[in-house]
Each structure stands twice: as structure tokens, then as C-alpha cells.
Design a protein around this nucleic acid. Structure first.
Length: 211
DNA sequence: TATTGGGGTAGAG
DNA sequence: CTCTACCCCAATA
């Protein structure tokens, strides 16, 4: 036995996250594939880890748990490439051919659960303001600006749903909601659950690792 | 049609 | 580089 299930080092975590990006949810035997990338870990360990992570995220997303885990261990972040100038490794899948002016409003590719999860993971690992490190290590294929914008909207939504009574939503007003009298809680995109069978289009395979 | 959700960009610190 | 605010677009009620 080489590695323990409890001993998740940064390297292992890194490999785990990397495998997470490489193998989307639609991947069959995903955990086995991912575990293959993490030496000393079985698919169960990986799944456990993922489940724990997701649970943690769920806690954050649902209630008022703000970074319950390690946040003081940021000193480890400077171990394997935090302030390393790696240039721009962002990949732009050719979709810029639609713009005609320099200041053209780009399309706006919706974030997938994978990206969102990665974003949350990076958020836990690096903290809030470090979009730079997050985009560089956690959410590859997304620029810091993208991450920042997404984070903004994410926190905005969190704040809105958390502290209701502060939002002119027409659906918030009393009276029973439509369809059945039960409390219908509508969830939108942003939750880790996947209401849509179609998730990530097979266009994600351009990650350049700076290392 | 009106409102909300979602994402990008512009500007300021 | 990060944060805030505004704008634009698409889906939905």
C-alpha cells in the first residue's frame, strides 16, 4: 500500500483535479480512469474524495458555510507554481471569427458543471481573490477575468438566495407558487446537479500545462 | 412582453 | 491584477 486514503497531498490533489478535467462526467468508469492518474489511489478513494468535495460545496452552496476547510494552508500554494510566470496558456477554440469590430461583444460560452466545480475547488484551495491562480491551476481554459465574472455572478446569486427579502422578484411574493401547493424550489444552473443530460460538448481538450 | 439568469466588457482602484 | 458597475443576449413565466 503506497498511499493512504487520508493522505491527499497537493500533488495528488493536483493530479486528481487534472484527471477531473480530462475525464468529464460522461466518461464511463470515470473514477477508474481518474484513479489511474493518481498513483496510490483506488477508484473508491477518488470517488470518496470527490463526494466529500461535492458535499462540501453543497454545504457552501446551500447554507452559510464559508470555506470550512483549510484556508490557512495557503502557504502550500507557493510550492508548485503560483507566482510562476507561465504566460498565457489559455486556449481559445476558434470562435472569434464572428466579431467584426475590435470591441465586439463575444458570444459567452456558458460554464459547465465541470468548470463550476473546478472553480469552487480552486476557490477553496486558493481563496477568494486569487482568480489568477485559480484560472491557472484549477479552471484551465478560462481566463482570470472569466473566473472573476463567474465568481461575481455566483456570489451574487448566493447572496440573493441566502438573504431573501431583498430582491424584487415577482416569484418571491407570497401566494402559492404554480403547480401543486408544495414548496417548489426552483434550481437554476449553478447547482452542481445536472438537470440536463447534455453537458459538455466535446470541445474541451486544449489545456497547456505551464510546468 | 416582462423579468431573471448568465456572461462579457468597460472603467476605476 | 482585482473589484464594481453596466450592457447585451437568451431562456422562461
Amino acid at each position: 500500500m503506497i498511499g493512504n486514503s487520508s493522505s491527499w497531498s497537493r500533488l495528488e490533489d493536483k493530479a486528481f483535479e487534472r484527471a477531473l478535467v480530462v475525464f468529464p462526467e460522461e466518461t464511463l468508469c470515470r473514477w477508474e480512469k481518474i484513479a489511474s492518474q493518481v498513483p496510490g489511489k483506488t477508484w473508491f478513494d477518488v470517488k470518496k474524495r470527490y463526494d466529500d468535495l461535492v458535499h462540501d460545496i453543497g454545504e457552501i452552496d446551500s447554507g452559510r458555510v464559508e470555506l470550512p476547510s483549510y484556508e490557512d494552508e495557503l502557504d502550500c500554494a507557493g510550492g508548485w507554481g503560483s507566482s510562476t510566470e507561465s504566460g498565457t496558456s489559455q486556449v481559445w477554440f476558434g470562435s472569434t471569427a464572428k466579431g467584426k469590430d475590435t470591441t465586439e461583444r463575444r458570444k459567452g460560452v456558458p460554464w459547465t458543471e465541470e468548470e463550476h466545480r473546478l472553480f469552487l475547488i480552486g476557490l477553496q484551495r486558493y481563496g477568494k481573490g486569487d482568480w489568477r491562480s485559480i484560472s491557472r491551476n484549477a479552471v484551465v481554459s478560462r481566463t482570470p477575468t472569466q473566473v472573476a465574472s463567474h465568481a461575481q455572478k455566483y456570489f451574487l446569486r448566493l447572496n440573493s438566495m441566502k438573504k431573501d427579502k431583498k430582491r424584487p422578484s415577482i416569484h418571491d411574493i407570497t401566494t402559492n407558487p404554480p403547480t401543486t401547493t408544495t414548496t417548489n424550489d426552483s434550481i437554476s444552473t449553478h447547482d452542481f446537479i445536472d438537470p440536463n443530460p447534455f453537458s459538455h460538448p466535446p470541445s474541451y481538450h486544449g489545456f497547456g500545462f505551464p510546468m
